[in-house]
């Protein structure tokens, strides 16, 4: 499938499981256990095809991360898909600038399709 996915989630097991599955489907996966780490990468010009973002994290919330992206002028450049255990967070995520929302526990096919859509769009943009 190609493309690089940046997974931001404080739950190690979730991060690990996603990484293994996406790997298996040919995606390049980078993981960050907290959003600040992810923001640092972005600041260092890292440009993943899509970011898979958890919302509830101890040090910095998903909203704060999105706000940070906004400040860095990355909105629209790097699509963000929110993956949250809080199904009521959909609105907040969209308001904060997320491009799509997936509820935990997510179906693998849905996850792949959603990420694939953003990866393909990114590829066509860069082509």
């Amino acid at each position: 499938m190609g493309g690089e996915v940046l997974v931001v989630d404080d739950d190690r097991d979730v991060r690990e499981a996603i990484q293994m599955i996406l790997d298996a489907y040919g995606m390049t996966v980078r993981v960050a256990s907290d959003p600040q780490q992810a923001l640092d990468w972005l600041a260092a010009k890292a440009r993943p095809s899509v970011i898979l973002l958890d919302m509830r994290m101890p040090e910095m919330s998903g909203e704060e991360f999105l706000a940070g992206m906004e400040r860095m002028g990355l909105r629209g450049l790097v699509p963000v898909v929110v993956l949250s255990g809080d199904t009521t967070a959909r609105h907040a995520a969209q308001a904060a600038g997320a491009d799509d929302f997936l509820a935990k526990p997510v179906d693998v096919q849905v996850l792949l399709a959603t990420l694939g859509r953003f990866v393909a769009a990114g590829a066509s943009l860069t082509d």
């Binding site: 739950d11 979730v14 499981a17 599955i21 993956l83 526990p105 997510v106 693998v108």
Partner: peptide, 8 residues
């Protein structure tokens, strides 16, 4: 959280 991990 666990459900997600288990599903994957």
């Amino acid at each position: 959280g666990p459900a997600t991990a288990l599903k994957l």
